[in-house]
Design a protein around this nucleic acid. Structure first.
Lengths: 171, 171
DNA sequence: TTCATACAGTTCTAAAAATGAACTGTCAAT
DNA sequence: ATTGACAGTTCATTTTTAGAACTGTATGAA
């Protein structure tokens, strides 16, 4: 599969991965959320090669996730800051962080705690249903093809029936 | 940076990326959530090379995200199914999908709609504070070092002060 | 009995991407 | 005149990925 083809897939997950689904983009964005704005800042915080950093920043700008803003004229210098589209990735970041907090901590505990300014408490992010407010889990969600679904699509086979007859020895 | 080093970083986001932050793992997991379980199913749905698919499945099993369960003896065959750790990635998937739905759809609209069985409505996933239930945004959250933070860490410099004096021409 | 097909991989070579290190160019401070 | 900060670019080397073919067990068909 060509990697750019992802953005044309009739799947919002695939398209999102086309934008931020490589090894570095999310780490660069982590730095953005931690208020890093400049090339050297990203580079020294992440240890990414300068070559790749330049590439990734360009891509994120092209995708509208970051904006490149001049902050000095003489030797042209720019800062990279999150656009609204970029800020909207916050739930993605929090979901990833929370999974790591839940499943990947060592005996010492979480590296970072989050405080919600509105209520003043340390919190966990919870994914809820916009309609009823209940926390979501995979089993309580049913998917339907939407208007942008591929018309007659063999792309997401929910099952491969018909051929599984043979495995009756276990059923 | 060695890629395995990510899992030792004192950052839950980095550790999570160490597990699922490559080009294919999240797409494989998408298929898992859509109830694909077998090698051929993943391969034909994704178009991933067989070689990589085998590698990624092994890694996901090693990480405890998938479990490899025999479903036929004669020619040994296995199914890959989500563990609880894997199911816990659901908020990550939903966050990614929702961002794609918001920022990456074409004129035709969303490829997939989600229905919440509990309330019967089509919904969007919303990330809220576990303490007060309000939706979260980056600006309302303050981070503190937790118990697992690196002791004297120059790893996540919130700023590079001291040297920025020169750029006063703009300030 | 032979042949084709399903399934779950493994092996191999070529192509693409990432790493590491050095280099470029502008300006400020010394 | 020299040094250092900053934001890249260039290039050789290494690592990953893609693409295709191959392996091996078993089933069903001819």
């Amino acid at each position: 599969m060509k990697w750019d083809a992802l953005e044309e897939e009739p799947c919002s997950l695939a398209r999102t991965i086309g934008v931020i689904g490589d090894r570095w983009s999310l780490l660069i964005l982590r730095e953005c959320f931690l208020r890093t704005r400049r090339f050297e800042g990203f580079q020294s915080a992440l240890g990414i090669t300068r070559h790749l950093l330049a590439e990734r920043l360009k891509k994120l700008v092209r995708q509208g996730v970051l904006r490149r803003i001049p902050y000095r004229e003489a030797p042209k210098r720019h800062e990279y800051i999150l656009t609204q589209k970029g800020l909207d990735l916050y739930p993605v970041m929090m979901a990833l962080v929370h999974w790591g907090d839940t499943h990947m901590v060592d005996e010492r505990g979480r590296p970072l705690l989050h405080e919600h300014r509105k209520c003043g408490k340390l919190f966990n992010p919870v994914m809820v249903c916009s309609e009823c407010g209940e926390p979501l889990s995979a089993k309580e969600v049913h998917t339907h093809p939407g208007p942008g679904a591929r018309p007659a699509s063999p792309r997401l086979p929910v099952d491969k029936p018909a051929k599984a007859k043979r495995s009756r020895q276990a059923a």
